[in-house]
Design a protein around this nucleic acid. Structure first.
Lengths: 208, 208, 208, 208
DNA sequence: CAGTAATCGAGACGGTACGTCGTGTCTTATA
DNA sequence: TATAAGACACGACGTACCGTCTCGATTACTG
């Protein structure tokens, strides 16, 4: 995630005026602000540039378009999650999923996440970027939580990380982003315990 | 749900030339076709009108914009689901969820569903339409499946329909629409059994 | 001018519901009012109909379009001029031209006369209507004034009515409608006396 | 008059990409061509842009609308008149007025001049542009012709330039543009001699 | 320390879709 | 048959955003 675009890792850049190092951060920050203020459809490249104090040219030199820009802006937001150690698998899960819920409830996330996925429908390379930079980095959280529970002796063996991941993210996306409903503590607790119960079942049955 | 816009149920219409009754169906059908062919961002009102053999004006007289039009087009697609009776709760669920998966895998659904939800982010009235016409009509499937299982004696009491609904729809949306991955028979079976296991847990614990 | 359109003199109309006799006057009056209020480009058939308390259909059954409607509306305005007898050729001319000036200064005339002539550029039948119904009816004023002057013995023989007519109408149209300047008493007196002087020259030289 | 719009004389232009210098001429030329081909009502901005090989945006960046565009297109046409020296006041006048007649008989002029004046009825700023750029530049012709005649000793003192100007332009506009009749050599000669006779009268009477 | 090369701000450009408006025609029920 | 009401096909409007381009000006590294 430190390289926000492919065109930027071309080795030790030498000739010519170097790029303004502050611009990237200003642009991504402006992008998030405007996503929160205006929503995806009314987010214009020109306004992002203006807000960041940068020319449109500069922005287009670094990102090919609105979608790629927003991917990187969201990636920064989603790069700070980690599995919290709360002593038990249930508590770990509650705390970690809670962090994820908070992210989903940010206005910039609400504006961007579904829009990006929608845009990615006909654009395989965009879909790859969304998955690589925003979605998949969260998958390791499930893995780590499972490993920690194993280390504690709460569970053993392997499980279906992908399925669990889809269930957690998907359910919350459906609740928060698609239906626009809040996730309170009770809903969260109930949800996590259902998932953990199912997860146990998964292990017992050995994939049915 | 058969009324595609509020302005159309105004009692015993008398004055003036009546609206062309065929146009609605032609427009919605053209909308779905073009969604599948071009995707959401390249779906233009002008082309829908042309494909439906209708003037742009006529289309705007019936729907305020692209999003509202697509809501109704999708609503028709999603109005044919029902709970299949396969003899057991597990088999009922597999068959019914399988129908839903097929809908999610249609190119028109892939083009439209997330785009609509994204567009609805800042537009409460659009969100309400999406939920009322596309999302919520599927919720009764969960209810009916549960009732049938009760009647068979497989389960008893009540359960958290909303949570189960979010889990089923959300997981599949995440898998199919967001990550763009296929749902095969194995994934489906595994998923459904995890949900049913969790559901049993939900009943036992009495909401934790 | 009593028959405002060709489609209306079809003999002794018999079958079916007869046309509303008041509608013509109401429509022409509404047309003049709206010309004065909104100007030619913003005059819409729909609004004329509404103002006249009539359906668009009714209007289109009587006039083929906006231009023809306005021709008749203007024709009524221009149908009341006559040569005033003020005792001398100069005074007759001043009084009669003064009437014409007043017509040109009406807002409805300002809105309509040049617009009609412009519209007539590519439409020979419209040009014929404008000339027959609005322009040429005034030409006889020149003829009558000349005849009266002859009868008084102020002048004798013939003159070039067409040229004099073009000069009088044209000069005032240029001043009032094209340049938008007022015609005061001094300008009018000076103008008429120049024309009369030229007219004398015309007679003397016998066409140069 | 060479500057087609006020927004274009902004001193030593520096910042940003400069405007395409050829575009103005191409647009104005396309405008005249299409005026001649289609007439004013069927002249569309989109077609002018296409014909000039320019985007609609570019055209709107330079002119606020159809009328302003046509004013400049006509201004170019009317900017080439001059008083010809034919040895006598009468011959000078015949030659110069003859040039003007030729301009009025061009199809682009027939399409545009009255339409512009009509459009200017409710738009003071447009009226000012029409007068400043198309009408008034011809007024000096009358002045120069008079001065030359004075220098020759044919006439002396001052005269009412405005009135003479209205009479010349107005009469020909009425004949050619409003009535759509041709101006042949005989009409022209007769007309000019009447005006000159009246002009002499004007001088003698000292304004009546 | 001049030359080269890439960056930057600014804004014009070609293109495309938008949603609105006016036209003149039509289709209904009613008079 | 005329009427009021209003839907209809059509086509132009003027606006907005996109992503590209062309400028002059700046800012480093290079030879």
């Amino acid at each position: 995630m430190s390289e926000s675009e492919d065109s930027r890792q071309t080795g030790p850049r030498t000739r010519g005026r170097p790029r303004n190092a502050d611009a990237d951060a200003a642009i991504l920050s402006a992008t998030r602000d405007l996503l929160a203020e205006r929503g995806w459809p009314d987010l214009t490249i020109a306004e992002v540039a203006a807000r960041a104090g940068v020319a449109k040219t500069t922005l287009y030199r670094r990102w090919p378009g609105k979608a790629d820009l927003v991917v990187d802006a969201m990636a920064e937001l989603f790069s700070h999650l980690e599995v919290l150690d709360r002593g038990s698998m249930l508590q770990d899960a509650l705390a970690t999923v809670g962090q994820y819920v908070e992210l989903l409830q940010l206005p910039e996330t609400q504006a961007a996440l579904l829009a990006l996925s929608a845009e990615a429908d006909r654009d395989a390379s965009l879909r790859a970027k969304v998955i690589d930079k925003v979605i998949d980095p969260q998958r390791h959280l499930v893995y780590e939580a499972w490993e920690r529970a194993c280390a504690r002796g709460e569970v053993e063996g392997e499980t279906d990380i992908d399925l669990i991941f889809d269930m957690i993210c998907g359910t919350l996306v459906h609740r928060i982003l698609i239906k626009g409903q809040p996730v309170d503590q009770e809903y969260l607790t109930r949800f996590v315990s259902v998932v953990l119960a199912g997860l146990a079942q998964l292990r017992l049955a050995g994939g049915i």
